[in-house]
Write a protein that binds this DNA or RNA. Structure first.
Length: 1017
RNA sequence: GGGCCCGUGGCUCAGCCUGGUUAGAGCGUUCGCCUGAUAAGCGAAAGGUCCGGGGUUCAAACCCCCGCGGGCCCA
C-alpha cells in the first residue's frame, strides 16, 4: 500500500530500519568490483555537525552511491581529525585553565587523557549525525589521527622529508599565539578587524642635533626591539625644515608623502632643505630611541638600509624589528643584523627589554607611547582599524616572534607542486588552475612544530651532549606495544643512547594538526605498516571538500605527498562552496543565524534536505533558504502522488512488468523518449560531478513531463477494461519511467527511492533485495525520438494557447466546444497537429480541429482621417467612399493622382462571430465558443459526473464500489449521455425525479438541482 | 595592493564552458481552471537596462577589456 500522502519521517524511519535489519550496506559493500579509492577529508571532532559538514558528506555519499551502483568497490573509510588546539582549548575551558602553567599543574598525562576522551566522545556523537543523513560509510572502521598506525604514517613522512633535506630547524619569525603559547601556521591565522595605535615616531639622527628620520608603526610594542630603518632605494626622500610652536626641527621622510604627515603633526610651515634618493640614505646612523631604557640597544649601532618591500605609504621609512616581522627578519639576515626578540612565549617582555620587562606587549603600547611623549619623539598619534591576524581557535590577536621551529621547506618543492596540480582534474577547473595555483605560488616554508600537548609528537631525538639528531621514521624503531600511548608525556620518557655516549631526548614539540590530515591518503589505509592496500589504491581517485581547504587539506596533502612519493595524492578534486544564511552571511552563533541540520530534517526530511543542497551548483556558496527547501518538499509530494497513481491501478489489475510487451501509443513513445534523454544526460552529468543538473533535470522530467502531461494524457486509458492492451501499454510505460528515473535519483534521495523500491517496484517486477544492489540505469538511445519530442512540444504550446483562449471566453475546460482552428504557415506545426490530433482533441475538449494557412478573417479598411485630412482636405469624404470599397490592402494607395502613405489607412481584422483567438509560437489558435444543444447536454453530463464523483468521495466509497444515483433534473437535459454518466460514476442505476441516500444541493452555472447517491449492495 | 568567485523579475536560483527563436524555473502577488494522484495539482497575467561601460561578431546574459558592488583567500 502507498499511503495517501508523503511523510518523510515515516519513510526514513522504515527504510533505516530495513537497511539496518537486512544489513544492506554490508551486502552492497561485500560485492566485488573495480576499485575506486575515495579519501574522506576528516572533519574535526567538534562534537556537532553543521550545515556545511552535512552538505559535504551528502555530496560524498551521493557520488559514492552512484559509483557503487556502477559496480565499483569503494573505499569509504570515514576519517576523524582529532588532535590539536581546538580540543585543547575546549578541555582548558572545561577546567577553567588560563595558560600552560595550569595544564602542567593539572598534569600533562591527565590533560592528554581528557583530550582523548573528549575527541572520542565527539566522534561518536557526530557519527550518529552523519548516519542520520543517510550517509553510507564504513562507520565501524574509521581512520583516526590519534591511532598509533596513523602516527606511524606521519613519522614516516617526516623521515622522508629529512632524507630529502626538506626538514629544517631554523630561527624564524612565526605567527605566535600568546594565549596558546605556540607557533601557528599561516593557515591557522584568521584575519579580523582590530583597532590599534597608529603612530609617527621621530628617530634622532646621530651627530645631527634636532634632526630625525620619521617612521610609522601600528605596533609601538615592537619599538624596543627596533634594529634598523628601511627605505626604498628608488623613492625620493627629503630633509624638511619644519616649524611647530615656533620651534624648528629637521625631518627626513619620503618627499611626496611629507605634506600629509607634516600636517598631521601640526607643523605650520615647512620647506625642503635637501633631497636624496633612497640609496643615498643608506648607512645613515640614528640613535635608538630607547638606548637608555633597553640595555642591549646601547651596544648595537642603528642605521638606515634599503629594501624594495618598502611601499609609498605613510612616511616611506619603515621601522625594522627583525624579531617581530618576517620581512624585517629577512632583511636582518641579509644585512647580518642582530635578531632581537625580547618577548617571551606568553607575549611578555623578558629582561632583555630593560625597563619594559614584565609587561604584556599589547598593554605595553601605551607605556611605550607615553615614554616617547616624554622624549618628545611622537610626531603624531592616531588610531587605525585594520585587518589583523588572530588565533583561529582562541581568537587572541597574534604577535610575530622569532623562535626556533621545525619547517618543511615548501619553497624547495614549490615547482613540483605546481607541476603536479596541473595533472589533477579540478571541478570547477579554476579551483586548481587559478585559486590553488595562486595559493601555492605564494606559499612559504611550512612551520610544522607546535609547543603544545595534544598532537602527534615530532619524532626527533637530539643528543644532549653532542647535538646529534635522530629522526624516528617508524614506531618499530622504539620499543612499542599495543597498550603504550604514543602521545605526550609518555613518548618523552623514551630516550636513546647516542654514539657519543650521551642521552638523546625528544624535542618537546608536537605537529601542526594540518600535518596529521596531510598524510591521510596513506595513513587511512594503514601505510606504511601495511603495504597491500596502498599499492593497489594510491593515489586517490576522488576527493571533495570546501573551498577553505585550498589552503588546508588540498595543500597539506599535496605537500606531504610530494615529499613522500613525488606526486599528487589525488586524481580528481571537486571543490564545493560554503553554506551561508539567506542574506549571504556566514552562519555564526553571534549573528544568531545558525540553522542546524536536525532542524531542517525535522521539517522536511532527509531526502528533501539532500535534494535541496544538491540542487545548486556545488562550487557556489549555498544561501540556505527555507522557502526553497520546503519547495523541494512540495515537489516530492507530487512525485509521491504520481507513483501512487500508477500503483493504485497497476495493483488493482495485478499488473506484472516484463518489459514493454504491448503496442505503444504515441504518448508512450514520447515519454519514453523523454525518459531516455534524461537518463543519458544524467549519466553524463554524474561523470562530471554536475550534481545539480541531475536534480534539476529529474524534477523537470518527472514533474513537468511525466506528472503534468503524460499522466493527464493516459488517465482514460487506465480506466479501460481489464485486459485492454492500450492500458497495459500505459502501465508498462509508466512502470519503466518510474523504475529508471527513481534509480537515477536514488543516490541523491536514498530513502524515498528505497521505499519506492520496496513498496512499488517489488509489487510489479523481479527485484533485488535493495535498490542499491541494482545497476545505475543506462540510456536505451533507440527510444530517443527527436521528431516526436518536437511535435509534442508544439502540441503542448497549442494546448496552452487554447486554454488561454478559453480563459478569455470564460469557457471552462469541462465544457466541450465545437471547433478549434490552428492557423499556421509552418509545415512542421501542421504535421504535429495532424499526427497528434487525438491528444489535442481530448486535452482541449473540442469536437474538431482544423489547420489552415490563413484563417478567413474579414479585412476592414478605414481611412485614417488624422493623416489624410490635412492632405485631402474637402476630398476626404470621397476618399472614405473609395476606401469602403477596398477588399484588401492595395500595393500603393493612389487617390485622384495623389500618392498616399501606408498610414493613410487603418487595417483591422474582424474574426467571425463566436471565435476567440490566442497566438502561440508559430501561429494562432481560433476557438469557436458558441454552444449548441448537444454540447450543452454533454457539458451537463460532465458536470453531473463530476458532482457524483465528489459525493462518492465524501462518502468514502472505494474506487471499485458501485452505486445507485438519483437526479431531480429533467432527463432531457442529459439526453444521450445517460450511459456515459452511469459508466463514469459506476452507477448501476440512474433514477430521475426521485431522491434517496446521500443527497446534496448543487448549483451549476446558475442552474440549481439535487443529486442523491447510495451504495449498491 | 594581488588572486579567485559571484552579480539574471520582489525572493531563491538555472542558463554562461560550447554566442543563434520572444532569457527560463520555483516561491510570492492577482485572476482563473481541474480533480477517484486530491488536506494535492494545473494554467494565465503582471513583473527583467541579464551590475555599468567599451570591444569582438551578421548576432553577446554567454567571449574579451575596463569599471562598480559583494564574498572568500592572500599581502
Amino acid at each position: 500500500m502507498i499511503p495517501p500522502s508523503y511523510s518523510p519521517q515515516k519513510v526514513e524511519a522504515e527504510v533505516s530500519k530495513f537497511w539496518k535489519e537486512k544489513k544492506i550496506y554490508e551486502k552492497v559493500k561485500s560485492r566485488s568490483g573495480r576499485k575506486f579509492y575515495f579519501v574522506d577529508g576528516p572533519p574535526y571532532t567538534t562534537g556537532r555537525i553543521h550545515l556545511g559538514t552535512a552538505w559535504n558528506k551528502i555530496i560524498k555519499d551521493t557520488i559514492l552511491r552512484y559509483k557503487r551502483m556502477n559496480g565499483y568497490d569503494i573505499t569509504d573509510t570515514p576519517g576523524w581529525d582529532m588532535h590539536g588546539l581546538p580540543i585543547e582549548v575546549k578541555v582548558e575551558q572545561e577546567f577553567g585553565f588560563k595558560n600552560k602553567r595550569d595544564i602542567e599543574k593539572f598534569g600533562v598525562e591527565k590533560f592528554v587523557q581528557k583530550c582523548m576522551e573528549y575527541a572520542l566522545k565527539n566522534k561518536d556523537a557526530m557519527t550518529e549525525q552523519f548516519k542520520s543523513l543517510g550517509v553510507w560509510m564504513d562507520w565501524e572502521n574509521p581512520y583516526m589521527t590519534i591511532k598509533a598506525e596513523y602516527i606511524n604514517a606521519a613519522w614516516f613522512a617526516i623521515k622522508k622529508a629529512h632524507e630529502k633535506g626538506l626538514l629544517e630547524r631554523k630561527l624564524m619569525v612565526v605567527n605566535w599565539c600568546p594565549r596558546c603559547e605556540t607557533a601557528l601556521a599561516d593557515a591557522e591565522v584568521e584575519y579580523a578587524e582590530k583597532e590599534d595605535p597608529s603612530i609617527y615616531v621621530k628617530f634622532p639622527i646621530k651627530n645631527e642635533p634636532n634632526t630625525y628620520i620619521v617612521i610609522w608603526t601600528t605596533t609601538p610594542w615592537t619599538l624596543p626591539a627596533n634594529i634598523a630603518v628601511a627605505v626604498n632605494p628608488a623613492f625620493e626622500y627629503a630633509k624638511f625644515r619644519a616649524i611647530k610652536n615656533s620651534k624648528e626641527e629637521f625631518l627626513i621622510l619620503a618627499k611626496d608623502l611629507a605634506e600629509d604627515v607634516l600636517s598631521k603633526g601640526d607643523y605650520k610651515h615647512w620647506e625642503i632643505i635637501e633631497t636624496y634618493n633612497g640609496k643615498e640614505l643608506e648607512g645613515l646612523e640614528y640613535e635608538h630611541i630607547f638606548a637608555n631604557e633597553v640595555p642591549k640597544q646601547k651596544i648595537w649601532t642603528h642605521k638606515v638600509y634599503t629594501a624594495s618591500f618598502v611601499t609609498a605609504e605613510n612616511t616611506g621609512c619603515v621601522h625594522i624589528a627583525p624579531g617581530h616581522g618576517l620581512e624585517d627578519y629577512e632583511l636582518a639576515i641579509s644585512k647580518n643584523l642582530p635578531i632581537f626578540n625580547p618577548v617571551d612565549e606568553r607575549g611578555v617582555y623578558n629582561e632583555d627589554a630593560g625597563i619594559f620587562a614584565g609587561l604584556r606587549v599589547f598593554e605595553a603600547n601605551d607605556v611605550v607611547i607615553d615614554k616617547l611623549y616624554e622624549k618628545n619623539l611622537i610626531l603624531y598619534e592616531g588610531k587605525i582599524i585594520h585587518r589583523y591576524g588572530h588565533c583561529w581557535r582562541c581568537k587572541s590577536p597574534i604577535i610575530y616572534r622569532s623562535t626556533e621551529q621545525w619547517f618543511i621547506a615548501i619553497t624547495k618543492i614549490k615547482e613540483k607542486m605546481l607541476e603536479e596540480i596541473n595533472k589533477v582534474v579540478w571541478i570547477p577547473e579554476w579551483a586548481g588552475s587559478a585559486r590553488f595555483k595562486d595559493w601555492i605560488s605564494n606559499a612559504k616554508d611550512w612551520c610544522i612544530s607546535r609547543q603544545r600537548y595534544w598532537g602527534i609528537p615530532i619524532p626527533v631525538w637530539i643528543c644532549e651532549k653532542c647535538g646529534e639528531m635522530r629522526i624516528v621514521g617508524s614506531i618499530d624503531e622504539i620499543e612499542w606495544k599495543e597498550d603504550i600511548d604514543l602521545h605526550k608525556p609518555r613518548i618523552d620518557e623514551i630516550t636513546f643512547e647516542c654514539k657519543c655516549g650521551g642521552v638523546m631526548k625528544r624535542v618537546p614539540d608536537v605537529f601542526d594538526v594540518w600535518f596529521d590530515s596531510g598524510v591521510a591518503s596513506w595513513a587511512s589505509i594503514g601505510y606504511p605498516a601495511k603495504k597491500e592496500l596502498f599499492e593497489k589504491l594510491w593515489p586517490a581517485d576522488f576527493i571533495t571538500e570546501g573551498h577553505d581547504q585550498t589552503r588546508g587539506w588540498f595543500y597539506s596533502q599535496l605537500g606531504t605527498s610530494i615529499i613522500c612519493f613525488d606526486r599528487a595524492p589525488y586524481k580528481t578534486v571537486l571543490m564545493h562552496g560554503f553554506t551561508l544564511d539567506e542574506l549571504g552571511r556566514k552562519m555564526s552563533k553571534s549573528l544568531g543565524n545558525v540553522i542546524e541540520p536536525e532542524e531542517v530534517i525535522e521539517q522536511i526530511g532527509v531526502d528533501c534536505f539532500r535534494l535541496y543542497v544538491l540542487s545548486s551548483a556545488p562550487w557556489e556558496d549555498l544561501r540556505f533558504s527555507w522557502d526553497e527547501a520546503r519547495n523541494i518538499n512540495r515537489m516530492m509530494n507530487v512525485i509521491w502522488n504520481a507513483v501512487r497513481f500508477a500503483y493504485t491501478y497497476m495493483s488493482l489489475d495485478n499488473f506484472k512488468y516484463e518489459g514493454i510487451k504491448h503496442e505503444l501509443s504515441v504518448e508512450d513513445r514520447w515519454i519514453l523518449s523523454r525518459l531516455e534523454r534524461f537518463v543519458k544526460s544524467a549519466n553524463n552529468e554524474m561523470e562530471n560531478c554536475q550534481l545539480h543538473r541531475v536534480v534539476r533535470n529529474f524534477l523537470e522530467f518527472f514533474l513537468g513531463d511525466f506528472s503534468r502531461w503524460y499522466i493527464q494524457l493516459i488517465r482514460s486509458r487506465v480506466w479501460e477494461e481489464k485486459e485492454s492492451p492500450s492500458k497495459l501499454a500505459a502501465y508498462e510505460t509508466m512502470f519503466k519511467v518510474i523504475d529508471k528515473s527513481i534509480r537515477i535519483i536514488a543516490p541523491f534521495a536514498p530513502f524515498i527511492s528505497e521505499w519506492f523500491y520496496q513498496n512499488f517496484f517489488k509489487s510489479f517486477r523481479k527485484t533485488e533485495e535493495s535498490i542499491f544492489l541494482e545497476d545505475y540505469p543506462k540510456a536505451e538511445e533507440e527510444y530517443i525520438d527527436d521528431e516526436l519530442e518536437i511535435k509534442m512540444k508544439i502540441i503542448r504550446q497549442i494546448f496552452e494557447a487554447t486554454s488561454a483562449a478559453r480563459n478569455k471566453a470564460k469557457r471552462k475546460l469541462r465544457w466541450p466546444l465545437r471547433e478549434l482552428i490552428v492557423e499556421t504557415q509552418k509545415e512542421k506545426i501542421a504535421e504535429a497537429v495532424e499526427s497528434l490530433k487525438n491528444i489535442l482533441l481530448n486535452q482541449c475538449n473540442v469536437k474538431e480541429i482544423k489547420v489552415v494557412k490563413n484563417f478567413e478573417k474579414k479585412v476592414v479598411i478605414k481611412p485614417n482621417f488624422k493623416v489624410v485630412g490635412p492632405i485631402l482636405k474637402n476630398k476626404v469624404s470621397e476618399f472614405a467612399k473609395f476606401v469602403e470599397n477596398l477588399r484588401e490592402l492595395p500595393e500603393k494607395i493612389v487617390f485622384e493622382g495623389i500618392e498616399l502613405g501606408r498610414d493613410a489607412l487603418i487595417v483591422e481584422y474582424e474574426i467571425p462571430a463566436g471565435f476567440v483567438y490566442e497566438s502561440f509560437e508559430g501561429g494562432v489558435v481560433y476557438l469557436y465558443t458558441e454552444l449548441d444543444k448537444d454540447l450543452i447536454r454533454e457539458a451537463y453530463a460532465r458536470e453531473i459526473v463530476r458532482r457524483i464523483q465528489e459525493m462518492r468521495k465524501e462518502m468514502n466509497l472505494n474506487v471499485e464500489d458501485y452505486i445507485r444515483s438519483y437526479l431531480d433534473v429533467d432527463p432531457e437535459l442529459v439526453e444521450g449521455w445517460r450511459e456515459y454518466i452511469m459508466r463514469e460514476t459506476r452507477s448501476k442505476e440512474l433514477v430521475f425525479g426521485e431522491l434517496k441516500g446521500y443527497i446534496k444541493d448543487w448549483d451549476v452555472e446558475g442552474m440549481k438541482f439535487k443529486i442523491g447517491i447510495e451504495r449498491w449492495s
